[in-house]
Design a protein around this nucleic acid. Structure first.
Length: 310
DNA sequence: AAGACCACCTGCGTGC
DNA sequence: TGCACGCAGGTGGTCT
């Protein structure tokens, strides 16, 4: 389950249904699900058995569950299609069941990692010394996410000014800002009326602060309704879908009217995926010097198209 | 050496 | 009916 709101929904489920439970046994059903655990499936299972799960933490799209008193965490990434499910012990096996955790208690439920495309996976890592909440060292390169109170807004704006790339690439770069994926990038850009190919260096600090505000708003809104699910692939630990797909303004709306101006939304092939945008509200960036005379429309000498509003 | 690309998977919908 | 192709919410290794 991909982006930050959906992963946070899962984290909350783990906190409620898996924390403080002691692992009785672990069954790895597909080796790819533990490929990030170099010591292999048998080692993964053996090192978990008998240990008690702590409270799940999250940074961006990564989750980790510390093992009580061990200095070790289970690191999880759901990839494109991963699910962590709390299921009754006698529930039929999912077609893509990859890992099963049985617990040493009377709850008669177990934790299952189910993943159709196997881009996701679980692994065990030592907690980095002095890192926040025992952040595993292998994800030290992942930036804080926009819902993290310690996210550094000034540093983010400065990085955007410094970089020679475009805004959607930057939003998807997990080492700059984590947790944003293709859906929420398009949603935030639509809200900010920014074209996906706008060079990051052209964003003023107030403009990037505004964009960041939209990223946070759309993520909070999605979180409030359990995340975005188009189908049964994206569910909470109890297998339930969120409702935010009904509130999407850009993603998946090719041909439908822009909710602001009514213009038909467009889809563009972009980096082997899709970008959805309004061709009227989200114009491509054109430096003043390249625009035909008079095209700036009542320019006041401020920034360029970024300063314009519909 | 920052930035861009594409391989890694399975399944589903569409068009021939 | 079946086959080929495009598409799907992500990441990291590998190129330049």
């Amino acid at each position: 389950m991909p982006e930050l709101p959906e992963v946070e929904v899962v984290r909350r489920g783990l906190e409620r249904w898996a924390a403080a439970r002691t692992v009785a046994s672990v069954e790895v059903r597909h080796p790819r699900a533990v490929r990030r655990h170099p010591a292999g499936a048998a080692d993964f299972a053996a090192r978990l058995t008998g240990h008690t799960l702590g409270t799940a933490h999250r940074r961006g799209k990564y989750l980790w569950i510390p093992l009580a008193g061990e200095g070790t965490s289970i690191l999880a990434h759901l990839g494109m299609s991963g699910q962590l499910l709390i299921q009754p012990e006698d529930a039929p096996e999912e077609k893509h069941l990859r890992i099963r955790f049985r617990f040493a208690d009377d709850a008669r439920t177990e934790l299952r990692f189910v993943d159709q495309r196997t881009f996701g996976g679980l692994s065990l890592h030592p907690e980095a010394q002095g890192a926040a909440d025992g952040l595993p060292d292998v994800i030290a390169h992942i930036a804080r996410d926009p819902l993290d109170p310690r996210f550094d807004e000034g540093a983010f704006a400065a990085s955007l000014r410094r970089r020679r790339t475009t805004i959607k690439r930057a939003l998807l770069d997990q080492s700059l800002i984590s947790g944003v994926g293709n859906i929420y990038a398009d949603e935030a850009l639509w809200r900010a009326r920014l074209h996906y190919d706008r060079p990051t260096a052209t964003l003023t600090r107030p403009r990037s602060a505004e964009l960041l505000g939209h990223v946070r708003d759309v993520m909070h809104a999605a979180l409030a309704v359990g995340g975005t699910s188009f189908d049964s692939l994206y569910v909470n630990v109890n297998g339930e879908s969120g409702y935010f797909d009904r509130s999407l303004d850009a993603y998946g709306r090719e041909g439908e009217p822009c909710r602001r101006c009514g213009t038909a939304m467009r889809r563009r092939q972009w980096m082997n995926r899709s970008s959805y945008f309004c061709p009227r509200c989200q114009r491509p960036y054109a430096p003043r010097s390249l625009r035909p005379a008079g095209a700036s429309g009542g320019g006041t000498g401020t920034a360029g198209p970024a300063a314009r509003r519909q």
